[in-house]
């Protein structure tokens, strides 16, 4: 099902779309050290070279996030945003098992069940993900987040990635990016 671009609207994507996509990619990087390579491989697999021809172009697209240190004042084109949505969802699907494991552990932690289940050691994986996300964020973004803010963002992105790692992921992510426009 092709992603639909709303008609009669702005020529380029709102900045919030670039921010959200960059954050999701950073969360993928925090889950897996090879995620950037996986994202670039997904470009080839999905035949999206027209929009992301090489590594530098990919980096430039991510730098449309206005919060980045290396932000260049360029807004994403709709087709570029669609390409990034497809790429993010492809890699999220590949990491579905890891996402399921981390979200399960996070849920058990929230419900206070980790100890009862004897799964305390799993907490370390969630902590590692959150710490790595915070490091990447602090390194790349110009306005730092407090520790609790960073943790909240990392965990929200983890749940988002999990929910877009299914069959309808691309459509779901695309609609959530447009959300806020929908009353």
């Amino acid at each position: 099902m092709p992603l639909e671009v709303p008609t009669d609207l702005l020529p380029r994507c709102p900045r919030s779309v670039a921010m959200e996509l960059d954050n999701l990619m950073m969360a993928l990087e925090s889950l897996n050290l090879e995620a950037v390579e996986a994202l670039l491989a997904a470009v080839q697999e999905l035949g999206l070279e027209k929009w992301v021809p090489h590594r530098v172009a990919f980096w430039q697209l991510r730098n449309t996030n206005p919060l980045r240190n290396s932000y260049q004042r360029e807004a994403l084109q709709w087709e570029e945003a669609k390409a990034l949505v497809a790429i993010v969802c492809r890699v999220a699907q590949q990491l579905h098992t890891v996402l399921r494991f981390l979200v399960t552990t996070y849920q058990q932690q929230l419900e206070g069940k980790l100890e009862a289940l004897g799964m305390q050691q799993n907490q370390g994986y969630v902590d590692f993900y959150v710490d790595r996300f915070q490091e990447l964020y602090a390194h790349r973004m110009r306005s730092p987040l407090s520790r609790p803010e960073g943790q909240e963002l990392a965990l929200q992105l983890l749940v988002e990635l999990f929910f877009i790692s299914g069959s309808g992921g691309e459509q779901r992510l695309w609609h959530s990016l447009m959300d806020g426009a929908v009353e």
Binding site: E4, V5, P6, T7, D8, L9, L10, P14, S16, G168, Q171, H175, M178, G180, A181, V182
Partner: peptide, 13 residues
């Protein structure tokens, strides 16, 4: 089909 709300531009025309 998956029911999504109609896409609306971030600002109305």
């Amino acid at each position: 089909v998956i029911p999504f709300p109609a896409l609306r531009p971030p600002t109305s025309p």
